[in-house]
Nucleic acid binder design. Structure first.
Lengths: 191, 191
DNA sequence: CAGTTTGTTCAAATTTTGCTGAACAGATGT
DNA sequence: ACATCTGTTCAGCAAAATTTGAACAAACTG
């Protein structure tokens, strides 16, 4: 008969009691990250690491989340690339160990900097180019066509201004100066 | 021989000169919206409408972007649902006409309110639940297990605080009070 | 140096997503 | 009531993304 009091490390069925809660939290973060444009596993892996007091190996992670080692390798690599996870090593151990970067605020800033900022900038450039082409195309025209191109030109300049504002907004967030400190309780972290 | 001076409405090849620029701008917005989690066509359609001085029909749109009427109907419906596009009608015309909501700022706020806010809220709830379960599970434990659960509990409370901060941040954006007005030139719009 | 252990890359298979044409439904005019 | 025009929904197809097992590569052990 199966010993009901087995503490933790049974092969299959008897996960520690808290494992379910941990997975729920990881899934929530996974949804967040997926929505946010990353692989869903990145959020799940990061959360498991973030909740673990000890660095973990790929084998640990692969077992906890029931993922193939390739999937773990891929998503973990991307997390490392984004600076969300760091490799560490243990004397005497050959495996790589991973631990979560715990300053979420810092992570957010990095993502906005490397991703959103570029994206908006590209869009703004496209709007600017289009505007310029319209500007050239409208010279010498009159009547209905001219009215239409003037309208388009004005609208494009509006889009341009908006992207510039967005760029600045994100820039301020990245620089950490966007938030009125009085509005939020501390978002600083222990790290 | 083909009359070179045909004004605009040729069947196929001779698009107006400015069409290319318009499409480039639409594509930029499409990329932005796709990245942002919407269908890419939503951004493209909206831009075409935004740049047009006159309301347009589905046929116009479908022809401009070379999309099937079903694709137009689908994405346009979603745009209407998000309040990014409005239907209008012309006396004597049976078709529906569409025009873009031109206050981009208002749109952004609506999206954040209806989407991001819910998303973060759900994540926060999940973190809270997990935290509570851990809290219950750790009672009466000692030693290694207790330490681990205490750690998890503390980390979950951190995630909880962060989501709360995020919720508040987005809330302020939605309420229009997040931005330090001195930091940005006017984001107000003509409407 | 041969044999392990560990991590990464690759191609095939599966799943998911997006798009289309056709069927359908609603409305309008004859 | 019928015919026509317009917009929406749906089943099937095509393209894209994810996932996996296996091959490969690298680092270490004895």
């Amino acid at each position: 008969m199966p010993s009901a009091a087995a503490k933790q490390e049974d092969p299959n069925d008897s996960q520690p009691l808290w494992r379910e809660a941990e997975l729920r939290a990881a899934d929530a973060m996974g949804r967040l990250m997926e929505f946010w444009g990353f692989r869903r596993h990145m959020g799940r892996l990061w959360t498991i690491l973030y909740l673990s007091p000890e660095p973990m190996t790929t084998a640990d992670l692969s077992e906890t989340l029931q993922l193939s080692s390739s999937a773990v390798s891929l998503s973990l690599g991307e997390l490392v690339h984004w600076g969300a996870v760091r490799k560490t090593w243990r004397p005497g151990e050959r495996k790589d160990f991973y631990q979560a970067e715990s300053s979420v605020w810092k992570l957010l800033r990095r993502v906005y900097e490397r991703r959103e900022l570029n994206l908006i900038r590209e869009a703004r450039e496209a709007f600017g180019d289009a505007q310029q082409h319209i500007d050239e195309a409208r010279r010498g025209l009159g009547g209905e066509d001219r009215r239409r191109l003037d309208y388009m030109h004005q609208r494009l300049s509006r889009l341009n201004a908006l992207s510039k504002a967005g760029e600045r907004l994100v820039g301020l967030l990245v620089a950490g100066r966007m938030i009125n400190p009085a509005d939020l309780q501390s978002v600083e972290e222990e790290e």
